[in-house]
Computed example of a mutant assay.
Amino acid sequence: MIDHAHDLDAVREATDRLLSATAELDAAALTAPSRLPGWSRGHVLAHLSRNADALVNVLQGRPMYADGETRDRDIERDAPRPPAEQRADLSGSAARFDSAAAAPADWSRTVTLRNGVTDSASRLPFRRLVEVELHHVDLGIGYELEDLPEEFVAREIEFLAERFDGHPDVVATRLADDRGPVRTTGGGAEGGPVTVRGTAPELLGWLSGRRDGAALKVEGGPLPALPPL
């Protein structure tokens, strides 16, 4: 069962870690490449700020983004800002999200996200947590998948396994890590079943497109190719 209040606490903690980690980044560090292709660290921080505001829109019944072009343009606009502006926006947008999430609401209602995706409002805090935690890793400033909270890693593996379940391009796959239960995913493509074993951070890295899976052990066939998120 999703506990949105618990997840909001986790978002606050993750945001505090991110703000502390980025406090000393200078302009050169922010213009340096992140681990995301084509994005500087400034792009990542700009995206996180605009994502917080976009989730406020969702919580308050507005479209998440005006359109895809506006989303991309806003990130490009905000990416080259000076460090002080980046940090102020990151902190301010996080506070706006926290305030909107603290307002009395029906957390069981269905909300609409980007590209017409729908979900329970109760899942929004965890979705924000995913953004903050994984993009903190994407900055490449010393926070790695192995540093992520164990609970978060287990839940994100579960979330991604659910996302790929039945996908037409993914063979039937069993996921076995060193922390949690065996999970199944894929199954829409011919072939398999394949079992993929590894540590929870390595499995998460592969499922989220942040590692190539070279550290994983595969039984029953080659490592399945996963579609982009």
Rank of each mutant, 00 (worst) to 15 (best):
G192I: 10
R197P: 00
A172K: 10
R183Q: 01
G187P: 13
A189W: 03
P181W: 10
T185P: 00
L203F: 05
L207I: 08
R179V: 12
G180C: 04
G166E: 15
A172M: 11
G186I: 03
R197I: 01
G186A: 05
E190P: 13
R183C: 00
D177R: 11
A176F: 02
R174M: 08
P181K: 06
V182D: 11
W206F: 13
R179S: 01
R179D: 01
D178H: 06
T185C: 05
T173I: 12
V194Q: 07
A176W: 04
L203W: 03
G166F: 15
A200K: 05
G166R: 15
G198Y: 03
T199G: 12
D169C: 07
T199K: 03
D177S: 06
G198T: 13
A200I: 12
L203E: 03
L204I: 02
L204E: 02
G205A: 02
A200Q: 04
G188W: 07
A200G: 03
R183H: 01
A200Y: 04
A176K: 06
V182N: 04
D169N: 11
D178A: 06
V170R: 08
E190L: 12
D169F: 14
G192T: 10
G180Y: 10
E202N: 13
A172G: 13
G166C: 15
T173M: 14
W206T: 12
A189G: 07
V196D: 03
A176C: 06
G191F: 07
A176Y: 01
T185M: 14
P181N: 00
R174E: 13
P181Q: 06
P201Q: 07
G186M: 08
H167W: 03
V196W: 02
E202W: 00
R179G: 00
P201T: 07
